[in-house]
């Protein structure tokens, strides 16, 4: 492998790791950052998005539209969960953890009963790009671009909409926001919806690259958590930086030491980063 090829290979790998981590973490980061609760059913929102996308796609929708429908389906599902459960547990981190764990158990088993062990997947679009003797999936690289677009949109929504203003206020000081007449409960509800939509879109986007199974959510949960925690409190900057740095570390480690090495590197880096930067990467930026 020539140096140029290695470098290229590394860049592509790092980009695809970044794309995936950023996508699966964003929805969780929004909900965790603003509402301060842990959504243990996060993976199942991704699952709902992915399955709906696949269904739409097989029903003849173009992929992009199917992904949009997937996001919407996850959003509606999120709204139901919020109204039924989460709204009674605002500001109760541990309790939401256990309750959403319950949601996750239910969803996984229902999906299994309804659709069986695996679900017909989507063929990865866009073909491959060649570099020397090597080639990589174009779609995997496009995912990194999609992640950047989603982060930018989320940033715009937080900065330039009324909801964004309210949610930032609620995040910084809930009591003060309430005093100023901001309906924090409505803000929380919208946030949960918004986070769910983002997770659903992420599910739709990664659907063409993985097998669709009832456990697909559980499989990404740890990576999503790790990314959010390493990122720290700042939803946009922290999470994207975390995804980037973890991706950059995972890529060479998996090239050198195999998949297990890459995964271990991700976990060890997480532990070390938390130890060195107890505030997450946000702490460094601020």
């Amino acid at each position: 492998m020539s140096l140029i090829e290695s470098l290229f290979g590394f860049l592509i790998l790092a980009l695809s790791h970044f794309g995936k981590l950023a996508l699966i973490a964003l929805g969780l980061a929004v909900i965790f950052g603003i509402m301060g609760i842990i959504n243990f059913a996060h993976g199942e929102f991704i699952l709902v998005g992915a399955y709906t996308t696949a269904m739409g796609y097989h029903a003849g929708f173009p992929l992009l539209l199917a992904i949009f429908v997937g996001g919407l389906a996850a959003g509606i599902f999120g709204l139901i969960v919020e109204r039924l459960i989460i709204q009674h547990l605002y500001d109760r981190l541990i309790e939401t953890l256990v309750a959403t764990w319950g949601v996750s158990l239910i969803v996984i088993q229902l999906v299994r009963i309804q659709f069986g062990g695996t679900f017909a997947g989507i063929h990865t679009p866009l073909g491959s790009i060649q570099y020397g003797a090597f080639s990589a999936s174009t779609y995997r690289i496009a995912l990194a671009g999609a992640a950047i677009v989603l982060f930018a949109s989320t940033y715009a929504i937080f900065m330039y909409t009324r909801y964004g203003l309210h949610s930032r206020a609620a995040m910084q000081n809930k009591e003060m926001a309430q005093c100023l007449g901001i309906p924090t409960k409505r803000v929380y509800m919208k946030t949960f919806f918004f986070g769910s939509v983002l997770s659903g879109i992420a599910g739709g986007l990664i659907a063409p690259t993985v097998s669709l199974t009832p456990d697909m959510g559980t499989n990404v949960l740890v990576e999503a958590f790790v990314t959010v925690i390493v990122g720290g409190a700042n939803v946009i900057v922290g999470t994207s930086l975390a995804a980037l740095s973890l991706g950059i570390i995972q890529a060479p480690a998996s090239m050198l030491f195999g998949t297990l090495g890459g995964y271990l590197a991700l976990l060890i880096t997480t532990v070390l980063l938390i130890r060195v930067l107890p505030e997450g990467l946000t702490g460094v930026v601020e």
């Binding site: 492998m1 290979g9 592509i12 790998l13 695809s16 790791h17 995936k20 003797a133 090597f134 080639s135 990589a136 995997r140 993985v210 097998s211 697909m216 499989n219 890529a251 998996s254 090239m255 195999g258 998949t259 297990l260 890459g262 995964y263």
Partner: peptide, 22 residues
Amino acid sequence: EEFVPLGVDEFGSTINDIQQAD
């Protein structure tokens, strides 16, 4: 030979490695 932990669904580096081994 690539040994992959159960539950891993990310094969970018493996595919690279295969292309190299040809």
